[in-house]
Amino acid sequence: MELWFSEFHTPDVKHSIRINRHLYSKQSDYQRIDIFDTPEFGRVLTLDGNVMLTERDEFIYDEMITHVPMAVHPNIQDVLVIGAGDGGVVRELTRYEKIVRIDLVEMDPMVLEACRTYLPENACRLDDTRVHIYYDNALRFIRRCTAKYDLIIVDTTDPFGPSESNFTREFYGICYNALRDDGIMVNQQGSPFYKHDAEAMQRSHMRIASTFPVSRVYQAHIPTYAAGYWLFGFASKQYHPIDDLDAKRWSSLHLKTQYYTTKLHVGAFYLPAFLENMLREVEQSQ
């Protein structure tokens, strides 16, 4: 018997993963949530049919979205995480003892519920005493905050679904307002390869660049995402992602990682020419 999960990366490109078992399938108020058990990627979480994470490659995403800002800002105490209901980002953050408080805002309680049951490797630190979970609309939550956080991590689904609001100028604006004077915002920035994704990436980069004085893009290789090629946005009020990297300080923490290194940190900001052009294009249109 052959059972396959397929996701269209474009109307003309399909990515398929063989399934052993379909473990979970529920429709929440916001989206359809599925968890599969697969021979190649382990357990796979999909929302509305889009792969969010697989056990096999989630470390790349979760490490790159977390350790990059943590290695730049010398004193991160209060962190806000948007989305990330699987718990992977929180798991990475809780490894830092200096962090005092982690507020997690996820709109859909059913995502957390499903991940706690079926993805314990990701959800394992959601019960850390520093973690406070809020089931709320992100915009509603953030616009009530002023100068409250050192770091905001935006880990939401792509800009065409229920998270569309989290790629808007008003979203980045209220994040700016919620950060302290030396705060950093890191977000998943989509893929620059297929046209539809690339345009969305340009739009959100333009909005971030018009909101924050420092706005840079960095990349990682993530096999199960569109084109296997993913971007993150690093936006900050003061710190530069390379000039202010303190590799010594970070290394002295002796955190064991599988993807992130301080050398890769620097390299991730060196982008291919086509991508540099795409970013320059929207930066100049300001």
Binding site: S165, T168, I174
Partner: peptide, 18 residues
């Protein structure tokens, strides 16, 4: 829908701030 209202309100908050 609720999510678009949140955008409207947040955009108004931003317009005031800026």
């Amino acid at each position: 829908r609720r999510q678009e209202l949140e955008r409207l309100v947040s955009a108004l908050a931003e317009i005031r701030r800026r």
